Simulated scan of single mutants.
Amino acid sequence: MTTAKIRGVLASVMFAALTASAQTQTFSDAFAGFGSNDREPIEIQANELQVEDKTNSATFSGDVVVSQGEARLVTQRLKVYYDGSGGGAVQQRISKLEASGSVRVSSKDQTATGDNASFDMNQQVMVMTGDEVVLSQGPNVVVGNRLTVNLKTGKADLQAPSSGRVKVLIQPGSVQGQ
């Protein structure tokens, strides 16, 4: 694979995938940062990149950091699937992202952490799972083990483990506009 094609895959992978994020005013804001400003460059750092033409995928591994403006995704492994349609690598459409290994998504004062996250770009749904999925905004914290976010509407659903409950901690005076 040529260097130009790799650069095209990188650009299209991160821009197309991350521009599908929602614009809401809730805990799901941490997922909305990427792609919300197409004037901001997207930077990806990883120890390794493997592009697999036959499976239409690219895998970033080893201390992966994706940033755009104030939004940041940190994980150990990020696999990107694209459908292969379109003319050239830059035009390829992203179908799915899979992040694994201590996934952390943050923007401004909001952070979401879990063990794994998948972004289905066709359905515009993000699912984060783990022993503990923790959402925080400033001093406020919500904990469960499976978070599903509709990236189009911003609707978030946090589920508790089968043997537990969802936990919420809201600090007095921390919620503005109430």
Rank of each mutant, 00 (worst) to 15 (best):
T3M: 06
A4K: 04
K5T: 13
I6D: 10
R7Q: 11
G8H: 02
G8W: 06
L10F: 12
A11M: 01
S12P: 05
V13K: 01
V13C: 13
M14T: 12
A16S: 13
A17Y: 07
A17V: 06
L18S: 15
S21V: 10
Q23S: 15
F27E: 12
S28N: 05
A30D: 01
F31V: 11
F31N: 02
A32I: 04
N37V: 03
E40N: 15
I42Y: 05
I44K: 01
I44C: 07
Q45R: 13
Q45Y: 08
E48S: 09
L49S: 07
Q50D: 10
V51M: 09
T55V: 09
T55Q: 12
S57D: 09
A58D: 02
A58C: 01
T59D: 04
F60N: 01
G62A: 07
G62M: 04
G62D: 13
G62F: 13
V64P: 09
V66W: 04
V66Y: 05
V66F: 05
S67V: 10
S67P: 00
Q68E: 05
G69N: 04
G69L: 07
A71D: 02
R72M: 05
L73M: 15
Q76C: 02
Y82G: 07
D83T: 04
D83L: 06
D83P: 06
S85C: 03
A89N: 01
Q91V: 00
K96R: 14
E98I: 06
E98Y: 09
A99E: 11
S100V: 08
S100K: 06
S102E: 15
V105L: 09
K108G: 10
Q110K: 14
T113I: 04
N116H: 13
A117Q: 12
S118I: 13
F119D: 01
M121Q: 10
Q124H: 07
V125I: 13
M126G: 11
M128G: 13
M128P: 09
V133L: 00
V134S: 07
V134Y: 02
Q137F: 04
G138V: 03
G138N: 05
P139T: 10
N140F: 03
R146N: 06
L147R: 09
V149T: 08
V149R: 11
N150A: 07
L151I: 02
L151S: 08
G154P: 08
K155H: 05
Q159S: 11
S162P: 12
S163R: 09
R165Q: 06
V166N: 02
V166P: 02
L169Q: 04
G173K: 01
V175F: 02
Q176L: 05
